[in-house]
Each structure stands twice: as C-alpha cells, then as structure tokens.
Design a protein around this nucleic acid. Structure first.
Lengths: 122, 122
DNA sequence: TATGGTACATACAAACATGTAAGTAATGGC
DNA sequence: GCCATTACTTACATGTTTGTATGTACCATA
C-alpha cells in the first residue's frame, strides 16, 4: 500500500510468495476491509459516501486506501463525475465477479469452521 | 499471533471483521507463509526439518509461528514423538482438506489475473 | 567430557498496516 | 463573502507482523 523500501530479505521473500498463484490471489483480497467492500459491491454500484455510511466503523482514510488498492488490482472500477460536489462511483470488474462464487464457498467453509471452534470452547 | 493489546478501536473493528464468515476464513489462511505450508502438507505428513529444508527462505521462527497458528486454528495436526533427538510431524486436518478444492479455484483465479496484469505492463 | 542433531524459544529491531485528527478543492445556495 | 457538501489528502501516532541473532533441552555417540 505504501512505498516499499528495498529491504533485502523481506522483499526477496515477498517475491517467493508472489511466485505462487494462490498466495498472489489471497494477497489481493487480504486487506482488512477488502472483502466487506467487495461483498457490498456485489449488490451493485455504490458511491463513496454510501460505503462510508454503510461501514461506519471503517475510517474514511482506510476506505479510500482499500478502494484504491482494489482499483489498482483491477477488482474495482472507479468512475468520477465532473460535478460539484463531486460524485464518485465504485463497481466490481469482471475479474472480481468471477471471484464471487469462490468467495461464497470460502465463506461457507469459514462459517462451518467458526461454529466448530465455538463449540469446542464450551 | 502475538498477544493482542486491547486498543479500543483496532480491536473493536477486528470484531466487525470476524463477524463475517468470509473475512474470518481469509484471516485463517492469511499469514505470509500459511498457504505454502498448507499446499506442501497436501502431499502428506512432514517433519519440521523437512519443511525447513523445503522452504529455505522461511526463517525457522516464522515456520514455527505459522505452524502453531495453523494448529491453533485447527488446520494442522501436530504430533510429537518422545524421542531424542525430537521428531515432530505435521499433517492436515479434515477441515483443511475440505479447504483444498476451494484453494485450487482461488489459485486458478490468481493465475489468470496475474497473467492479465503482466500483459498490461507491456 | 565434548559434540551433534532436532525442534524449538526468546530478545530485539525493522517494516508494515491501521487509526486519529485535521485540512483541501470546487461550486452552488444563502 | 460565507457556508455546506463530497471525496478525498496529509501528517502523525499506535499496533501488528516479520526478520535477525542467539540460546536451550534432550540424549546418543565419540
């Protein structure tokens, strides 16, 4: 997200990670709020303000950063309308839509595992 | 991974994350090396030292931490043999095996996206 | 008695991610 | 001219993750 310093090992190791398609994929969606945002956008186009209201616990800064990262990674398309006050809309790209069904499976798995973990606590 | 300080917002927000099955799932597999480890273990039981040799770029410390996290999350089973020198074996749990097919799809998606991104650079 | 192998553990430092608070630009309506 | 609205941006502080270096326990063997 930020400018990467060319630290010897950390960066070199990151290369190893990114050589793996799977890790690459998970990195794309691994931000703290990205999945929630993607999920919301499955419902269709949203304005920045809408997302902000929807996710009141996400700070404006983080919302911006995560949206930018998603845009950068080709998962979200950003459209700016030359109006005042400004209007900006976000929507999923084709690539992101292909991800949807996979994420649904992952979500189910997560739910199952979570219930299991909860039961073990008793 | 480490002891969490109970910072007001950071932790509170984490709760929001974990209330989402999907984000919960991604968190379980989101560690820097977890996917590589899981992938290797799909091939069967491995000793700590085997993993260490296989992933020469992962530090011993990180390997330990990630394995412990995976164990904690019920994705990996750890078996200690009371021998000297010690022998410890790691293998996937049922839960982790169910994850396999989903990860394969994710990996394919990642590969596709990666090739796309590469082409756009030209 | 010293040495080696295995699977760690611990202390410390660097890099990274996230949160907090405040500011910006443009313009239409008052 | 002043204010409100929208979608940011910036500077700074805090928290988390990863890496580096070194140490430990065990016992068999030399």
């Amino acid at each position: 997200m930020a400018a990467r310093k060319k630290n010897s090992t950390y960066t070199r190791n990151e290369q190893c990670i990114i050589d793996c398609d799977l890790t690459y994929a998970v990195h794309k969606i691994g931000g703290r709020w990205k999945l929630l945002i993607l999920d919301k956008l499955e419902g269709g186009k949203r304005r920045f303000g809408e997302l902000k209201r929807e996710f009141s616990y996400i700070t404006e800064r983080m919302l911006t950063l995560q949206l930018r990262a998603l845009e950068q990674d080709g998962l979200v398309k950003r459209t700016v309308y030359a109006e005042v006050p400004p209007r900006v809309e976000y929507e999923l790209t084709e690539m992101a839509r292909e991800l949807g069904p996979i994420l649904k499976q992952l979500s189910q798995w997560g739910g199952k595992q979570r219930r299991l973990a909860k039961n073990e606590m008793k």
